[in-house]
């Protein structure tokens, strides 16, 4: 194993004495440590230590003023993770994923299919379709805050002109989450488009040609050639979009602050309010641990699949 290294520096010196070789190996290992030290220090300080600390904080209950905390063991985890409030937040986040992921995927696929053709000027369309990838969550949210505004918003204007009742998008408990979802779908569209178009470009042209020769029409080719070949990319997009949904915060903070009636109080927003508004660090930490396991599960699914397909590996 050891001698099967990638770059055989040691093999060049193999004719030399064993002691020199051992020294060279030690030097190489020390040099590797020096190169890795900055990353190791940063990961330890800002990823691993705080992760363990989050688990630890969940064992302590803050007093109502957030001044001191006492050890309560698993009680707080049981209380928080079993509470209706947390279940509602989890349900809201799940609903948010359900509103954003399938729609976003279908729209991204549609755009990618449209742009996957040899037409003059396509580069311009592709740039436009990709553009929201460069849009920050704050910029997108403020744009949609205006579009969704009940009095000046262009969306309500469109509704009124076509004979529908105007909607109080962000103030109505029924409509707030769909409104936030609409913003999110638009924001994610550029990313989904880029990933699916890249997937389309890896499908060999010959497959389409031979299907054509066999007399398959455009619709048949889409369902029998394109979509099956694209399924790893689509699965990848679903996982990434779902993880994104579970980590969403900015659009909630700018559009609804979790309201009305907690209807947009997704899990990260709930962590933020408990930890930084109510100073309930323990409660926030317990919710953070739950979020960690959710994202961990989704990430493992993704790694398993990346490993199997070796996709985007270069």
């Amino acid at each position: 194993m050891r001698d099967a290294g990638l770059i055989g520096e040691a093999s060049a010196t193999s004719s030399l004495r064993v002691r020199t070789r051992r020294n060279a190996r030690l030097r190489e290992a020390l040099f590797a440590l020096v190169l890795l030290a900055p990353s190791i220090a940063l990961f330890s300080t800002f990823a691993f230590y705080p992760l363990i600390k989050t688990f630890y904080l969940g064992f302590f209950r803050s007093d109502p003023f957030g001044l001191s905390a006492s050890y309560v063991g698993f009680d707080q985890y049981i209380d928080v993770l079993g509470s209706d409030r947390f279940h509602r937040s989890l349900f809201t986040t799940g609903l948010f994923a359900l509103f954003t992921v399938p729609t976003g995927l279908v729209l991204g696929l549609g755009l990618a299919l449209l742009a996957h053709q040899k037409l003059r000027g396509m580069i311009i369309y592709r740039t436009i379709f990709s553009s929201t990838v460069a849009t920050s969550v704050a910029v997108a949210s403020v744009m949609w805050l205006t579009l969704l505004n009940p009095s000046i918003g262009i969306i309500n204007y469109g509704l009124k002109e076509t004979g529908f009742e105007p909607i109080n998008w962000l103030g109505d408990p029924e409509w707030a989450l769909p409104a936030v979802s609409l913003t999110t779908i638009w924001l994610n569209l550029g990313f989904t488009f880029i990933v699916i178009l890249a997937g389309l470009q890896t499908i060999p042209e010959e497959l389409h040609e031979s299907a054509k020769v066999d007399g398959a029409g455009a619709v048949s080719r889409l369902f029998n050639v394109t979509l099956p070949m694209l399924s790893p990319t689509l699965l990848f997009s679903v996982v990434v979009l779902t993880i994104n949904a579970f980590q969403s915060f900015g659009q909630i903070d700018l559009l609804t602050q979790g309201g009305p009636l907690d209807r947009t109080n997704v899990i990260v927003y709930s962590i933020y309010t408990e930890g930084f508004r109510n100073f309930n660090e323990g409660v926030a930490a317990a919710q953070g641990v739950a979020l960690f396991f959710i994202v961990l599960t989704l990430t493992l699914i993704q790694f398993r699949f990346l490993e199997r397909r070796g996709f985007y590996g270069n």
Partner: peptide
């Protein structure tokens, strides 16, 4: 171990990181 950091969402660790 490096790759494992990809599984720690920043949102999970904001409280200890804020304290640090």
């Amino acid at each position: 171990v490096f790759l494992a950091t990809l599984m720690v969402p920043w949102e999970v660790t904001i409280i200890p990181n804020y304290q640090t």
